[in-house]
Design a binder for these strands. Sequence first.
DNA 1: AAGCTTTGACCTATA
DNA 2: TTATAGGTCAAAGCT
Length: 284
Amino acid sequence: MSSTSFTDLLASSGVDCYEEDEDFLCGFSPERTGSGLPKFKTAQPPPLPISQSFAFSDLLDSPLLLSSTHSLTSPTTGAFPFQGFNGTNNHSDIPWQLQPQTQPSNASSALQETYAVQDLPKKKDPVPREFAAHSLGSDRQVKVPSYMVSKNSNDGYGWRKYGQKQVKKSENPRSYFKCTYPNCVSKKIVETASDGQITEIIYKGGHNHPKPEFTKRPSGSASANARRMFNPSSVVSDTHDQSENSSISFDYSDLEQKSFKSEYGEIDEEEEQPEMKRLKREGE
DNA sequence: AAGCTTTGACCTATA
DNA sequence: TTATAGGTCAAAGCT
């Protein structure tokens, strides 16, 4: 099967938003449909056995994630936003790794890829099936690796949980979050395993506003929010499964990209498993 | 007091 | 048309 690193995907797809936080659109201008939604075509990414990893801390500072081959450096500044936890690009410091397996043939039109994530610290894969190859349909849903999503609200955006449900397709309950920003319709669905690990994160819609300067929810609630979060384990980005098997179509909208970026940015280095569990317990 | 989480019920889409 | 699953609403309680 084919999978691509999440970052790689973003990078290759022209999502270079990691460079500028305010640029939530990431300059990504996929062709849009009449509804204003970007549409991506399906392509057939060739297998690309590349492993890459990035640091959470970097994610914090960087609106986007790292990228692999072509996006290690900012296209505009040439600076690499991602560095190791200690300012070095040491892969060993990273708790997880992305294993890109596919490569977009066309960065602008073909975003189709899936990313496989390996949770180094964890031996088990909470997100096996999702992890596999997913195709992003045209519904602008994006599945993000859990490790890329740290706290619910620490991604810089404010999220309010509006529901939780146990779905059949997955043994883990899903939590539904809405962006608290006025008029923002961005939502995210977080699937959490019984052990507190986030097994899957799905972003729906994009933020129609710049990422707040982190002052979104300084209140106790916010902290409570932060307390309960998660642990990077695996992530998947994808939406709807297209009818194709080998080709995955990643339907990102600029909004999604923005979301990605922000979400990734929310990752904290302190979000380790144990930590997360502890926090979660506290939250409970 | 404000904002957030929880949770069961309700609504809608799909098979 | 009906059953089931997924998603959302909204009241109550909590921080």
